[in-house]
Design a protein around this nucleic acid. Structure first.
Lengths: 215, 215
DNA sequence: GTCTATAGGCGGATAGAC
DNA sequence: GTCTATCCGCCTATAGAC
């Protein structure tokens, strides 16, 4: 069974031996989901272990501590986000499109990233940990890294970057809230979702009302 | 010298009696700070108790459970925010100013509310708890309540309301991150803060680098 | 590479004194 | 109205077997 198969039905198979690099990746994947959903303190190493289909002790053994695991999750999320943005910027520069278009393109890229809900949410959860010596510091650096990318590589001015990030936070908030649960109950949830995501998010609601993007 | 003598001569009064309504208010105040800083799961009833200068058991005794206390903190924050916005709307309608001005006025009111940092942060922390049966539901309702107020009472259209909320989330994020710690280190923190708060936030940094607003 | 068992600490909640 | 003492469950981390 390939790694990819394993990823798609995570806790189905009873633990098989696996190269530790692959196992690492799998745990990081699960941890990203769980941290994203419940936050750093709300998540348990046992919950992460169960999501990855292995024992609690092994999670800790592999990463040293819950804190170190979270830091890895955070950096990995950052890594994916910035890689995606840099690809968009590179493609844009090769395209000859008018400069202002980059803002729009990055927005679309961000909406695409929502498919990786856990990634964006674990980022956001880190932003709520400013008080923590270790995690707070990493979160601040990460946040500024994104800002600097928008400013220095996408050449947005501070106001544009601010508005861009603001919309990102808004979308993250709505993801975290699981707002789609209220869809159609005439509370305004639908119109607000549309305003926030520009009607560009093809929503699929699962049984628990959670939203995932399909494309 | 007897123990009693000793006690009666000390002016570091161990907790004084107080009408329970007042005590309630005091606990809610402290809880708002602590929950705002550390989130629902990260906060402890003991931490809240110490912030309020009373015993852990008494906090639980008075509110029944940590969860109930958080719900009260959340509703109280919502209450303050909506009251403030409604006051602005009422004043605006009496002023005869052009309708579009309301957006700007509400923004200023929000920035004023940052003085009550804990309040805004505890709200934001609730938005990250969508997965929780009880708290998630309360948070969703609260979020939509604010949206409905902007739409139905301030008469913003969905796009305006979305952008307004987006900027709010951005400011909350920066508050939670304690970004001002990086002020002046040429990372862009300053220019981003200025873009986000429109240069309208008179910042005072305390010893720990935490920001509070003065006016 | 992965597990089971368990130590050790913390946190929420309850009982009961004052 | 408020405290101290304490129970119990949960969670992280470690030890050690396979």
């Amino acid at each position: 069974m390939s790694l990819t198969d394993n990823l798609s039905n995570m806790n189905a198979t009873p633990t098989e031996r696996m190269p530790s690099a692959d196992r690492r990746e799998l745990i990081l994947e699960s941890a990203t989901e769980v941290f994203g959903e419940r936050g750093y303190t709300g998540a348990t190493t046992d919950g992460i272990a169960r999501a990855a289909g292995i024992s609690q002790a092994y999670v800790v053994r592999m990463f040293g501590s819950k804190e170190k695991l979270f830091i890895e999750v955070l950096n990995r999320a950052l890594q994916r986000l910035t890689a995606e943005f840099r690809a968009v910027i590179a493609a844009h520069e090769a395209s000859g499109d008018p400069i202002e278009e980059i803002y729009h393109k990055l927005g679309l890229a961000y909406i695409d990233l929502i498919t990786d809900r856990g990634m964006l949410l674990s980022l956001m959860q880190s932003f709520a940990q400013g008080h923590d010596r270790v995690i707070g510091e990493a979160a601040r650096c990460g946040f500024l890294e994104i800002y600097q990318l928008l400013r220095d590589e996408a050449h947005l001015d501070p106001d544009q970057a601010n508005v861009f990030l603001a919309h990102g936070m808004m979308m993250n908030t709505m993801l975290g809230l699981q707002l789609p649960q209220l869809y159609g109950t005439d509370t305004g949830a639908t119109e607000l979702m549309n305003a926030a995501f520009g009607g560009k998010l093809p929503l699929v609601l699962d049984a628990t009302g959670q939203a995932s993007a399909s494309n």
